[in-house]
Nucleic acid binder design. Structure first.
Lengths: 190, 190
DNA sequence: CGCCTGATGTCATCCGGTGTCATCACCTAG
DNA sequence: CTAGGTGATGACACCGGATGACATCAGGCG
């Protein structure tokens, strides 16, 4: 199916991330991204629903991995154990190779409110996916909501530490540790 | 300071909400909102940073009320008690008069992804405000994060029920009850 | 060779958002 | 009463994100 230069999508993502890093998100136009990728503005919007989306490839896969990780937990696992197992399974994605990309992407997203909004939307979809997967295992409200939310909080904490530490420790270990800290913290609420 | 017809901001909010209800958010232009309010597109953007923001007035006040409610809790209060007290204090805003507005607004926001994104951003700012207020009381990580997140979850649950029940029960009671349910749920995580 | 198909380019258009300047109503000084 | 002064609004131009319609090109296939 591929004619012309292949990997148009990846070229657009690469060009976008580099330009955002150089000039910032606001000062980069879609036409400029497309030009650097050797394509046109119209083609950009055939690959990405909007300008922001170019930074959020693979989010669906992450959500799917979380849901499948929860669904695939042993039948007798508690909600906490199911989420913990999903975090460990998801860790397969966060290899040392991805670290450089994550490190370049993070400040770009953090510097722009529009991008932060999109990230929050993705986060919410991820929580919803965990919620539904847990509910399918028979976990009822409001436990299912708390479990999904804490799971996502643990993921965020682990991701942050993973980027800072530079892959010194495996992502899965960081995530499971973060989740355990959150469970312990619930006892200190009063 | 007021010349021309007064209450331009309120007129714009009223016109926007009505038009969004009639035609939907996407099929309403800023020029149409301004026209119904007897103003121009340029004036709309002097009152609101962007088209979405016209639906989010008063969010800063809500965040402030939450922070102050937590900061004003008795010195010996636990994190849970501080959040619970803040929820009760915030309830003052959710009067029967506001119910109609909330009921008209909710389906509009729910029907549009852009508006949902903005709502998630506001939610995140609210959580951050609670987080900081709790941290100022000496609550440490990760307890402070869990407390703020559960507080916001309780707020959301209470708001949902308040809209559905039609103000049959006071908002504060609904919120405190929801928070208590969440605390209980943490024990069922395993 | 000629048709079909899918990816890309070209062009036109809409709308959100912003900068700039003019204009108008009200206020206050004299 | 008049002359500015001030702040809100209007008028206009413009940029860039986003989309629809149609043309074009490369390859597969009969």
């Amino acid at each position: 199916m591929g004619r012309w230069e292949p990997n148009a999508r990846e070229r657009l993502e690469r060009a976008a991330l580099d330009l955002f890093t150089e000039r910032g998100y606001d000062r980069t136009t879609v036409a400029e991204i497309a030009e650097r990728a050797g394509l046109t503005k119209r083609t950009f919007f055939r690959y990405f629903a909007d300008k922001r989306e170019v930074l959020f490839g693979g989010q669906e896969e992450l959500t799917r991995l979380f849901s499948e990780g929860i669904a695939g937990s042993p039948p007798g696992a508690t909600p906490f154990e199911a989420v913990s197992g999903a975090l460990a399974a998801v860790a397969a994605v966060f290899t040392g190779e991805r670290l450089a990309l994550a490190r370049q992407r993070q400040p770009v997203v953090a510097a722009n409110t529009d991008l932060l909004e999109r990230e929050l939307l993705k986060r919410t979809k991820l929580v919803a996916g965990m919620h539904d997967a847990l509910a399918a295992r028979g976990v009822g409200e409001p436990t299912v909501t708390v479990a999904a939310e804490l799971g996502c909080l643990a993921f965020g904490t682990a991701f942050h530490r993973w980027i800072e530490e530079g892959n010194r420790r495996e992502f899965g270990a960081l995530a499971v540790e973060a989740l355990d800290e959150l469970r312990t913290a619930t006892a200190a609420l009063g």
